[in-house]
Amino acid sequence: MTVSGILPLQSIRELVDQSAIMSASKLDADQIQPASIDLRLGARAWRVRASYLPRGKRVMDRLPDVMMHEMDLTRGAVFESGCVYIAELQEFLSLPDGVSARANPKSSTGRVDVFVRLLSDFGDLFDDVREGYKGPIYVEIAPQTFSVLARTGTRLNQLRLKTGEVPKLYTADCGVDLMTGDLVGYRARRHAGIIDLDHVDGHNPRDFWEPLYQNKGQLLLDPGEFYILASQTDVVIPVTEAAEMLPIDPSVGEFRVHYAGFFDPGFGTEEAGGIGSKGVLEVRCHETPFLLEHGQTVARLVYEPLVAKPEQLYGQGGSHYQKQGLKLSKHFKPW
């Protein structure tokens, strides 16, 4: 009997060896993570008038209905804030029966407020890839606050593979920390410059972010603004589990939390050297101002089993975010 669960690194490598995951170019050495595989932009992208789902058609068959112009990513291109784009990915799939997938933005993508979602041919849902899917995959890119520079090979999202109906083991509420230390968060500066998504430690954070300081454990969220905050408690992902941080439901508050939802096995664990790791929360307030208070639940982590312990845990091969506290994306120099 096939065990239901998320596939670890070694199983993803087997899928690559079996040509269930293929690519237009050789995979990067660090592209396969403990429980996911990073996806890379291909050679072309298209500015579109509106987001769409294929719904029974191929992604490219629907593109002419909304396409404005084509972009050459081999030379790099700017994705402007407030605009929507569709880009081809270098990876494509030929999943065996019983294997499906789900995508999510990478942590660094969510922390610069770039909204990305996976598209697959004939799909009725963003980010979910049906069992046994065979075909190309694409990414919708919608920068919200900052315009960004990307190119062929830039990694914006990641794919998690799974077998069967993966059970939800348990959930954990995630509260916000507004009292530890003087600095409690950052608010994005509008009308800032362009962020090069492949330039690590290459940007002055003061040009893009306004620091937020402790104010009696409260923070007034302004509609339409984007914030980086930290979780009140440490986040620990056991070595045989993975987790997804879900956007919060309206019953908790008029805001959305966390674009980048995947937490890999070993995050925050002693075995992987991550004791003391916080969850970084990407918060956008909706139509009405909202007074956020220290310890208030702002997100929920859903834990799921792996089919086996990964051969390498999160952070053991190097990571920008293991043992993190309140932290901006890897694109920025230290504050």
Rank of each mutant, 00 (worst) to 15 (best):
Q214H: 13
Q232T: 07
A242N: 02
D173Y: 02
L246I: 12
H199Q: 06
L178A: 13
C174L: 15
C174N: 03
G181L: 05
D222P: 00
L169H: 05
E244H: 09
Q218W: 04
I228V: 15
P167H: 11
G181W: 08
E241L: 05
R187K: 12
V200D: 15
G202F: 02
P238C: 11
Y186P: 01
P238N: 01
P211D: 00
V235R: 01
I248Q: 09
W209H: 02
V236T: 13
K168M: 14
A243W: 02
Y227N: 05
I237A: 03
Y170F: 15
I195S: 05
M179W: 03
A230C: 05
A188G: 02
L169E: 14
G164T: 11
T171K: 12
M245W: 07
A188H: 04
S251V: 09
V239K: 00
H203P: 00
Q158L: 06
G193H: 09
D222A: 12
E225R: 15
F226M: 03
L246E: 12
M179I: 07
Q214N: 14
G175V: 04
Y170N: 13
D234H: 10
A192W: 02
R187N: 01
P211Y: 02
E165Y: 10
H203I: 00
L229T: 04
R190T: 08
Y170C: 13
E254W: 08
P205S: 04
A243D: 07
C174Q: 14
R256N: 08
D249P: 00
V236Y: 04
F208Q: 01
D234M: 10
L169V: 13
Y213A: 06
G217L: 06
P205Y: 03
D198M: 07
K216H: 14
H199Y: 09
D196I: 06
V166E: 00
Y213D: 02
G193R: 06
G193S: 05
F208C: 00
V235P: 01
V200M: 12
V200Q: 08
D173I: 03
D196Q: 12
G224Q: 08
G193K: 01
N215F: 08
T171C: 13
E165I: 13
A243M: 14
S251A: 10
A192N: 09
R256Q: 07
E244D: 08
L183G: 07
T233C: 09
L220M: 13
H199M: 14
G181I: 06
G164Q: 08
E254Q: 11
A242R: 08
E225K: 13
V235S: 02
A192Q: 06
L219E: 12
T180E: 11
F208T: 03
D177T: 04
A192M: 11
V200L: 14
